[in-house]
Design a protein around this nucleic acid. Sequence first.
RNA 1: GCCGGUAUAGCUCAGUUGGCCAGAGCAGCUGAUUUGUAAUCAGCGGGUCGGGGGUUCGAAUCCCUCUACCGGCUCCA
Length: 644
Amino acid sequence: MLSITLPNGDVREYPDGSRAYDIALSISEGLARNALSASLDGNTVELMAPLEHGGALKMYTWESPEGKQAFWHSSAHVLAQALTQLYPGIHLTIGPAIENGFYYDVDFRGAIPSDKDFPAIEAKMIELARLKAEFKMRSVSKSEALEVYKDNPFKTELIENLEDGSITFCDHGDFTDLCRGGHLPDTGWIKAVKVMNIAGAYWRGDEKRPQLSRVYAISFPKKALLDEYLTLLEEAKKRDHRRLGKELELFAFSQRVGQGLPLWLPKGTALRERLEQFLRTAQKKAGYLPVITPHIGSKELYETSGHYAKYGKDSFQPIGTPEEGEEYLLKPMNCPHHCEIYKTKPRSYKDLPLRLSEFGTVYRYEMSGELHGLTRVRGFTQDDAHLFCTNDQLLDEFKKVIELVLYIFKTLDFTEFKSQVSIRDPEKPEKYIGSTENWDKAESAIVQAAQEMGLPYVIETGEAAFYGPKLDFMVRDALGRSWQLGTIQVDYNLPERFELEYKGSDNQMHRPVMIHRAPFGSMERFVAVLLEHCGGNFPLWLTPEQVVVLPVSEKSIDYAREVSQLLENSDIRALIDERNEKTGRKIRDAEVSKVPFMLIVGELEAQNRSVSVRRHGHGDLGSMSIDEFAQLVQRAVREELGVE
RNA sequence: GCCGGUAUAGCUCAGUUGGCCAGAGCAGCUGAUUUGUAAUCAGCGGGUCGGGGGUUCGAAUCCCUCUACCGGCUCCA
C-alpha cells in the first residue's frame, strides 16, 4: 500500500501501482480532468506513471505555475518533434519551459527558418498534438544514451555530465528525447500554439561556443487562451516606454548623435528634474551632501580604483591631451571622484558617516546589440551617492538606505518589485578583489539589514560585483522583462585602494567602509520603467503638464489666460489650447495626450469666475471656482507625496 | 560583438510578378467656421523610398555592403 498525504493534511492509503492520476480521480473527477502534473515530496512525478513510494502528493492544474511548466515542457517535446520532421538532420539541444511558454535550442546545420516558416511549424505541432501520443518516461544506461545521440555533440555533452543510472528518456509517438520528466498525460492537451520568434543563442550561454537557434513558442489548452495572450501582448506594446516616450515627447534618439545616447526633450526634462528634486529633498533630510564632479577623469584615477584593469579595454577608449599626451577617460562611474573628495582633508570618526551624493552622468560602452530604449544606454545619469562610514555604522547606514529606497518605491506606487542579495561565487575567487574576511563581513551585513527591514529577498550566488556584495531591486517592464533599478553595494575595496582613513576615538587611524547606492539606478532607466508602470499616466506631482485650459471659442481666450495665470501662481502647471478647434476636438486631443485635468471655459465660466473640470479618464466633474480647483489639485499632489 | 528580422513624408502605414510624374490617414501650413465634454469643412506644401555600390533598356521592388532600429544571446563598474 502507498500512504499518501494530501495538501489538506489527510493521509490516505492507495494500492501499490497507483498513479497520481488515480489519486486525483479518488478526490474528484474534476481534479483528475484538469490535473497537468504532480509532485511527490516536492519532486516532480509523472501523472500517468505508477508512484514508487508514498509521500506528500500535490496536483497541479493550468492555474498553477507548476501546471503551466508541465504543459510547456511537454509542448517543447512536440516542438522538437515538429522541427525534426520539417528539418531533417538538425541537432536538438535543450528545450526548457520558461515563464511565458518554452523554447528549444537547435543547431539547424543549414538554413535557419524565418518567421515566414512559423505557420508551418505551428501547423505541424498541432497535427502531432492531435495524435494524442502519450508521454512515457524510461530509464536508459549512459552507454545506451550515448549510442542514441552519437551524432549529436550537444546531447552527448549533456549526457556525459549525467550520472549513469539517473538518465531518462521521454517517448511520445515515434519521438524520443533526453528528459528529466514532468509531462502532461498526452500531447492531445495542446490545442493552440504560437511560434513567437527565433533568435541566436550560444550553446550553454557561452559566446565562445557555437551559436544555436533558439525557437521561442507558447502553447495553450484552449484556442481562446492563446487569443487572450496575444491581445495582452498587444496591450503591453502600447505601454512600451519607447512608444510612449515618442508620443508624449519626452525623449528621442538621433542616429547622428549616436547609438544609445538619449536626447531629453523639454517635457521629459521637466519630468526628470522633478524626480531629481524629489530625491534631493529626501536625501537632504537623510543627511546627504550634494557634490559635483567632472565628466572626465585621469586614466590614473581609474587605474587606482581598479576599474581600468577590469573594464578599460572594453570601454570607451581614453582621450588624450594634444600637448602633454595625458590620458583621460569619460567618467564611467562616480565613486573614484567621491573618494578623492573624501581625501581632501583629514577625517575624524566624528565626520562619519559622510554621505556624498551626485546626479552624475556616466558613459559606458555597451555592446550595440544590447542597447534598448532608455533602459540600456551608453550615457546616463546615476542618482549616485557614496556613504563613508565605520564598520559599526555599516548595518545602520545600510538599513537607512533600504528605507529611502522603499520610500521612493512607495511614493511612486511600485508595489511589485523583487530584491536580490548578490554574493560572491566561492568557487571563483579569482573574479573578486578584497580579503575574504571583509567579504564575509559585508555579506552578512547585507543579509542582516534585509532581514531587519523585513525585505522579501532572494540570495544569488556569484552575482556580486567584483569589489563587493550588493542588494538590488528589480522590476519588470511592460513586456515582462526584468530590469534592475535601485542598488545598494558594500565596498571594502575602494577605501583600501584609495587609502581612505579616519582618526578614531582611540587616536588611531582606521579604514572606513563605503556604501555605493542609487535608489533609482539611473534616471534614464527609472523614467523608462516608471513610464511603463503607469502607462504614461504619471502621478499628478510628476507629470509635465497638470492642467490644460480649453477655451470654448476665441471669445474665451482672455479668460483662459487669466485662469492659467492664476493656476501658475499656485504652482500648478497649466497650458492653454488656443487652437481654433471645436471643444470636442480639444477634449479628445487632451485625453489622448494624457493631461490629468482639462478645464473647459466659455462665456458662462467667465461670468461666474469658474471652471468646468474634466478629469483624464474619468470625464466631467462639474464646475467649481478657480480657487476650489487649485485647492483640489494641491491636495491631490500632497496626498501623492504623502505630505501632511 | 553574434544570430534572425526591419528600414517608404514629422507619425502610422499602402505600394501586386522590376514598368508612366511614389500613395493614404494623421500631423503641419492657409482660409472659412466662433465652436460646450473624445476628431468642423475646404485648399496647399511635404519623400535622393536609411547611405553607398551593382544587375537591368528600366530598381522603392533583385544582389552586395555600410548604418540604425526591432527580437534574442552574452555582458553590465
